[in-house]
Amino acid sequence: MCKKITAVLLSIVLGAALLTGCGAKGAYPSDDIEVIVPKGAGGGTDTSTRGLLTYMEKNFEGAKFNVTNNPDGGGITGMVQTAEADPDGYVLGAVTVELDMFCFQGKTELTYESFDAIAMPIGAPAALIVQADAPYNSIDEFVAYCQENPGAVQVGNSGAGAIWDIATYLVEQEYGITVSHIPYPNGTADIAAAITGGHIDATLADPSSFMTQIEAGTLKCLGVMSEDRMTLLPEVPTFKEEGHDLVVRAWAALVAPKGLDEESLTALRNAAKAAMESEECKEYFLSQGIEPLDYIGDDAYQVMADDYEMYKKVFETIEFAE
């Protein structure tokens, strides 16, 4: 009698496991969708992706997203995981601007062409941030100071060869100045601590980690490397306005591995569109210090392609310190 019960129990468990495994696939999505974020929890990429997904769930019948963070290697492993997953719509991922850079740095063969873009919720521009009592109040004054003191101004970045470091090189190239590059591998929060504490002089980085200090008046932002002025910092001019066409943004895009069927892709894109256009989503982003974008589908893909071309040129022309 007991044997029978055990046998029945065993087959129930086995059956349940098999069923979940098979994922009796009905209409998309009929199962949880895994989203791989190639950055640590709490950062800009993670926050914006999770935010977008939360609001997408509200606009997408039956969808449930499970986010996993895989920040190893600056995000390479996470992005590769997404690219290599089955394009069945149940594994999505976020990719960041580094995708357009790693291929030129010999770190991977992966390019943006391995993905189908869904949406791009964030594109944080590099912002020139200095201490409030610094002797320069505009981009040009800062540049002049750097010209008088070559190599003395210490500019923080989030890692050698990473995006903010490249932004610094671009500024050096454009204005003909030399500054000292100081990497802070643990992210922009460390840079914020260093500038506030007076250990370095400036940084070119995503302003969201510095917003609290900027609003409190301990730090000031002199310029942003974006197409238009930021809603979060309306008095700060863009580098473009000041006559230097420098646009460097750390974007993160929600993507699917290439080959996802039209129907599912369109469904995801529509959900993302509805989410990003909703007031709640925009408010959420602003509250986190993130400037909300609304690139969907092909627009997002275009940004990825444009930046790919830009970094191709960058890595061919700029000599990085060995």
Binding site: L9, L10, V13
Partner: peptide, 13 residues
Amino acid sequence: TAIVTVVALAAIY
């Protein structure tokens, strides 16, 4: 053995 296996796998599930 059977009970432990089933319970463990069920708990993991």
